[in-house]
């Protein structure tokens, strides 16, 4: 079941578009904002709400990379792996963080605190290498600095 709040937020998007389907991505992101990810059940509920089949929605969900169809940790760490960051040492950042977290890219830490994900160019190439933790962009990283930053996210 969608929570009243989720429903309200989804409804608020409806007038912005001429079709209900257009809200599908927003709706999944809203649910994800509240629950961290979009489960099969959530997909079904959104589908009912928008008059779409679960297959319709899942076809959309699995196309995009910011919709999570598996549970994620409390904090999602997006490590830029695109070309400028790569030149500037992004690999050393992700090596350090995966070692420290005991999780590979695409995985979550055992304690459910972090999920580490590669992400394409975050548009901050003049400050490479960079990463984003939840909504915060962190610039000009070095391995040690990146590790320190993670410590701030409990």
């Amino acid at each position: 079941m969608l929570s009243p709040e989720e429903q309200r937020e989804i409804e608020a998007e409806l007038p912005h578009y001429p079709t209900k389907q257009a809200v599908s991505i927003d709706a999944m992101k809203i649910v994800q904002k509240h629950r961290g990810w979009v489960s099969d059940e959530a997909l079904e509920d959104i589908g009912k709400f928008l008059g779409m089949s679960t297959s319709d929605l899942d076809g959309v969900a699995t196309f995009y990379n910011l919709i999570f169809r598996k549970p994620v940790g409390r904090h999602v760490v997006y490590i830029c792996d695109s070309v400028s960051c790569w030149i500037m040492g992004a690999t050393s950042i992700s090596d350090r963080l995966t070692a420290r977290c005991g999780a590979r890219l695409g995985e979550s830490t055992a304690d459910g605190r972090f999920t580490l994900l590669p992400i394409v160019c975050l548009g901050a190439c003049d400050h490479a290498p960079v990463m984003m933790v939840d909504d915060d962009l962190h610039l000009d990283l070095e391995p040690a600095k990146a590790e320190d930053i993670l410590d701030r996210y409990k």
């Binding site: 912005h16 257009a22 992101k29 076809g59 959309v60 196309f63 910011l66």
Partner: peptide, 27 residues
């Protein structure tokens, strides 16, 4: 004027992929 936040994919920048994304479809 409305703001739409993408769910991420390079293809969404391609102008017709973008249109599909904005319509809530695969881009």
């Amino acid at each position: 004027i409305r703001l739409h936040l993408s769910a991420g994919r390079y293809m969404c920048g391609e102008e017709t992929g973008l249109l599909n994304a904005l319509e809530g479809k695969r881009a």
